[in-house]
Every structure is written in C-alpha cells, then in structure tokens.
Design a protein around this nucleic acid. Structure first.
Length: 273
DNA sequence: CAAATCCCCTGCAGGC
DNA sequence: TGCCTGCAGGGGATTT
C-alpha cells in the first residue's frame, strides 16, 4: 500500500521521464477514479499541456502543468505507475508524452485511487494544513510532542492520521513504533520527551530506509518498471506475526488497537512498552 | 474531540 | 473443483 517511500519512488521515476515533457494525449480508462472534472474534460484539459514539475505531498503525487493546474493522484491502496507501450493490467489512466519514453500508465487494482485536476486554490484546500500535516520525512520531536502530548488518542492512531503527519501508513507506523520501543496502544499523553525524540527519529529512519530500498512490496506495489521494492526484506514487525522479535526472540503479536478498529498493528509485547 | 462503523473495491485464503 | 465468506486497508462520511 503506497506510503511515503513508495510514492517517493514513483515520483522519482516519473520525474525522470515526464518533467518538462508535453502531454500529447490523455486517456481516462476508468471514469470512476476521476474526482474532478469529468473524464472527457480531464482528457481535454491535459492534452497539449507541458509538465512543469513532478512532486509528492505526503502520499499524493502532483504533476504541475503549464496551465496553472495540478494533476493530483492519490494511489491509496493499490495505485501504481508503469512505463512502456503495453497496456498493463488494471490501467486506469494513460498519459502519452512527447518524450522518448512515451507511455505513462496509472494502474490500480482495487480502484480506491483518486485522480483530480485542480487549480491553485483547490490544491491549497486539499493539501492545506487542515487536511495534511507536515511531511513525515522531516518530522521533528518538538512538533509531535507539541501536537500530541495532551491527546488521549493511541499513538498508532495519531501516527497514521494524515492531518497530524503526511505520509505514514500502517507499515511504517508499526516499524517506527518498534524501533522507538513504543507500544502502539500507548496513549499519546503518556509519552515522555525522550519517547517523542526516539519516535521522531524512528519515523524519519524507517521512511528513509524505505526510500533507499525502493519501497515495500508486501501486496501489489511495484515500481515504474514492474520491479518490487526491497523494504519487505528488512521490515522488522509488519506482517511478521508469530515470527521471533529481532531483539528478544519472543513472537511478534498482531492486534487491533483502539481508534484503528479496522487496521492491524504488529509489535513485540516485550520490547514495546 | 475521539472512536466506531460503513463504504468504496478486488484478489485471495480458508472452509466445506 | 467450486462456491461462499471473510479479510485486507487509505480515506472520507456519518453516527455514537
């Protein structure tokens, strides 16, 4: 499920082939994913536009166009980009560019992804501080402590809340909490200054390691060339229920924590307090 | 304000 | 083999 490192990997790849290029043709292959405007209108408004920049905000991909609009793509659970002339499985949007590598496909198996073309004001609305917290890659202990230390929420809930922090999802939240030795069900209000420091450092580290590894491919994620990421080889707790904790050898547990009834958390009950 | 629930959606695992 | 059920989960809306 694309979180910050997977999206960063996507953006790095897209930037190389799309930055500065003109969109010769756009084709919406699944109208249900297009939020605004309508599918045909989106195609019209993309055609002939030059891509000014390719960037990431949290888990979202942004293509800035020379029309002053932004193509905003949220991969959500299973969205990913692919290159090449062949139409991949689950292709939902095609951007045909003028450059040598011409076909950029956005694919999405589960169709949770969202695509929108927005102006500057709408972009601010959607990605502003009310909707998205600061980018998780550069999070500071001071910020986390200031924002959360008086909250009774569980720390896991807060970490995956995009209004608190943009970019962290279930995998990297579990990994960061393990590294910081903090139990996912701990109330934010019980964390010490030292805890916040360890946690901020752990968040930055797991995201950086994730980027370096090209992301995590536990489910469907692959990069622009169809290659899986490598973070799943070095992850410590996520998806490892029953396996020994890398610290103490006790089995990793999997449970749902308060406030995240539908998401499972993975942790070591001995190392994480 | 926080938490629970439902919804969107598809592939896959498990039961029989 | 094949049908059925439940689960996974990011994020938004709605309800408790």
């Amino acid at each position: 499920m694309p979180e910050l490192p997977e999206v960063e990997t996507m953006v790095a790849g897209i930037r190389g082939m799309a930055d500065g290029q003109t969109i010769v043709r756009a084709k919406v292959l699944d109208a249900a994913l297009v939020d605004t405007p309508g599918p045909r209108s989106l195609e019209r408004q993309l055609r002939g536009r030059r891509v000014r920049s390719v960037s990431r905000r949290g888990k979202r991909v942004l293509l800035e166009l020379d029309s002053g609009c932004w193509l905003l793509i949220e991969p959500r659970m299973t969205g990913s980009f692919r290159l090449g002339p062949q139409r991949p499985d689950y292709a939902r949007l095609l951007l045909e560019l003028a450059g040598p590598e011409r076909h950029l496909w956005f694919c999405d198996l589960r169709r949770f992804a969202r695509i929108a073309l927005v102006d500057e004001a709408e972009l601010q609305q959607r990605l502003g501080p009310n909707r998205q917290g600061p980018d998780a890659l550069k999070v500071s202990a001071e910020y986390l402590q200031r924002r959360l230390s008086r909250s009774s929420r569980t720390i896991k809930t807060a970490l995956v809340d995009q209004q608190v922090l943009a970019g962290v999802g279930n995998i990297y939240a579990d990994e960061a909490l393990f590294l910081a030795r903090i139990h996912p069900a701990r109330s934010c209000s019980t964390l010490s200054e030292h805890d916040w420091q360890r946690l901020a450092r752990a968040v930055r580290r797991v995201l950086r390691d994730g980027i370096r590894a090209g992301g995590t491919s536990i489910r469907n994620y692959v990069d622009l060339n169809g290659q899986p990421g490598r973070y799943q080889l070095i992850r410590r707790v996520y998806g490892r229920a029953g396996e020994p904790c890398p610290n103490c050898g006790r089995p990793i547990q999997r449970a749902k924590v308060r406030g995240l009834a539908t998401r499972s958390s993975h942790f070591c009950p001995r190392c994480q307090k």
